[in-house]
Design a protein around this nucleic acid. Structure first.
Lengths: 219, 219
DNA sequence: TAATTTCGATACCTAATAGTATCGGAACTG
DNA sequence: CAGTTCCGATACTATTAGGTATCGAAATTA
C-alpha cells in the first residue's frame, strides 16, 4: 500500500523521497492510536511527533483513514511470522512460547492500538466487512497451526474443535485490552493454556485417565 | 445518576420535568452509540432523534460524556438481573438459558453500543480505571454465580477456577462484537458451553463420572 | 549551474460540533 | 390569573481538526 513507485521508467529528477519518513510517520501513528484512539488522533499531532510536515504526510497518504489503515498493516507485518512458529515438541510449550517475556510492553502497545482501531470501525463505513484491520486474526491462525501440528502428533484427538480453541486466548486478550485496559500476563496465560485451551481440545491435563483406546501420547 | 430531585421539600412551582424525556434521550443515545460510536455521536443528533431540544438534554446532563455514561448505566440496568438467574438444575442448562432466543437483536444492539464505548475510554482520562462502563462485568458475575451453585451441588469439583471460566463466554462475545462485528449465535454458544467452559471447570462432559457426594442446595 | 522534487514548518480555509442563549408555548402552582 | 419552570426549536459562539497552499532550504539530476 506504500506509494513509493520505483516501477516506472520515469526520469525521476529532483530530491528522492525518503522511505525513513514513512516508517517514522507510521510509528508515530501507532503510538498515538494506542494513546488517544482514532478520533483523538490528529494528523497535526502525528506529523509533530514524527518530526515531519503535514505536507510530507499527505504526499504519502490521501486521508487520515488511509494512514491509520496502513499503520495497522505495518504493525501487523512486524508481528507473528507464520514461518517461524515455536516448535517445542508439546502443544503446551508451543502456546506458552508464543509469548516471550520481553514482549510484554510490545504486546501492550499493539493491543492498545487495536482499541484505537475499534473506534475507527464504527465510523468508516464498509471497514468492518474487510477485517484487514485486525491484529488478532494472524494470532488465531498461528494458534490453529500449532494445534494442527499437535493433532498430527497424536497429542490431541482428531475430533478436537481447533477453530474454536484457537480463538480462546486472543479473544481473552481482546477483552482485557479493549475493555479492562489491562495486558495479559504470564500467570493468566498459563492458566488459560492449562485449564481452558488444552481441556477444550480434549487433552484434559489435570484428569489424566485416557483409558480409552488409542493415541494417548504426550511429550 | 439521574438528575430528578424529588427529595427536597422545595415549593417546586412551574411545569414538572417529564421523566419520559429522560428515557427517550437515553435510548436515542444508545442507538447512536451503537451506530456511529462515541465520536460520531453529536448531541444535536441525539436531541433530534429523541424529538427533544438541546436545552432539555443539557438541563439533565452537563456534558456529552455524562450523558453517554448514564446511557450505558441505563442499558446495564435493563440487563441481567442477578436476583432472577435461571435455575434449570444443571450448569449446562443454566448457561444456555442465559441466552433467550428472542434476545438476539437486543444483544446485538448492546454489544455494538459497547464498541462505541471503547472509543470513549481512549479519550476520557481516568475512565478506564472505574470500569463502570462495562456491560460485560455483570454478565461475568452472573456466570460465576451459576458456577458456584453448580459447585455447591457437586456438579463441578471444588478446585474449579470459576473466576477464569466465567470470563470465557463474555470475552468471546466481546471479541466478536468489537472486532468481527458479528453477534454470537446459538450454535457457537452451545459449542462454547459444552467444549470449553464445562471442560475448563473439570466437568468433562465426555467423561461423565460425578460420583462424589454432594450438598445440593442453592440460594 | 539550473531545474525539479522533497523536506519541515506554518498559515490558511472550511466543516463539524460541544455548549449557551433565546423564544413562543405548554404545564403546573398558589 | 400570574408567576415559574419545562418543552421543542433554533440561532449563536468558540474551538477543533482534516486537508490545502506556500515558503525557504536541501537533495538530486541534467
Amino acid at each position: 500500500m506504500s506509494m513509493t513507485n520505483n516501477d516506472l521508467p520515469v526520469a525521476a529528477r529532483g530530491r528522492k523521497r525518503d522511505p525513513e519518513r514513512d516508517v517514522a510517520i507510521l510509528e508515530a501513528t501507532i503510538d498515538l492510536l494506542a494513546e488517544v484512539g482514532y478520533d483523538g488522533l490528529s494528523t497535526a499531532k502525528v506529523a509533530d511527533r514524527a518530526q515531519a510536515g503535514k505536507g510530507t504526510l499527505y504526499r504519502r497518504w490521501p486521508t487520515k483513514t488511509d494512514l491509520v489503515l496502513d499503520a495497522v498493516a505495518h504493525m501487523k507485518a512486524q508481528q507473528i511470522d507464520l514461518e517461524a512458529l515455536p516448535d517445542t515438541g508439546s502443544l503446551r510449550g508451543d502456546l506458552l512460547a508464543m509469548f516471550r517475556p520481553q514482549d510484554g510492553a510490545k504486546v501492550d502497545r499493539i493491543l492498545r492500538a487495536m482499541a484505537g482501531v475499534v473506534s475507527m470501525i464504527s465510523q468508516v463505513p464498509g471497514l468492518a466487512d474487510t477485517g484487514d484491520y485486525s491484529i488478532f486474526e494472524p494470532w488465531i491462525t498461528a494458534n490453529a497451526v500449532l494445534m494442527e501440528r499437535a493433532q498430527a502428533r497424536g497429542e490431541i484427538p482428531p475430533t478436537a474443535d481447533i477453530a474454536l480453541a484457537a480463538q480462546i486466548i486472543p479473544s481473552m486478550a481482546a477483552y482485557r485490552a479493549l475493555i479492562l485496559r489491562v495486558a495479559i500476563d504470564r500467570d493468566l496465560l498459563e492458566r488459560l493454556v492449562e485449564q481452558v485451551v488444552l481441556p477444550a481440545l480434549g487433552e484434559s491435563s489435570f484428569n489424566p485417565s485416557p483409558s480409552q483406546d488409542g493415541m494417548g501420547q504426550d511429550g
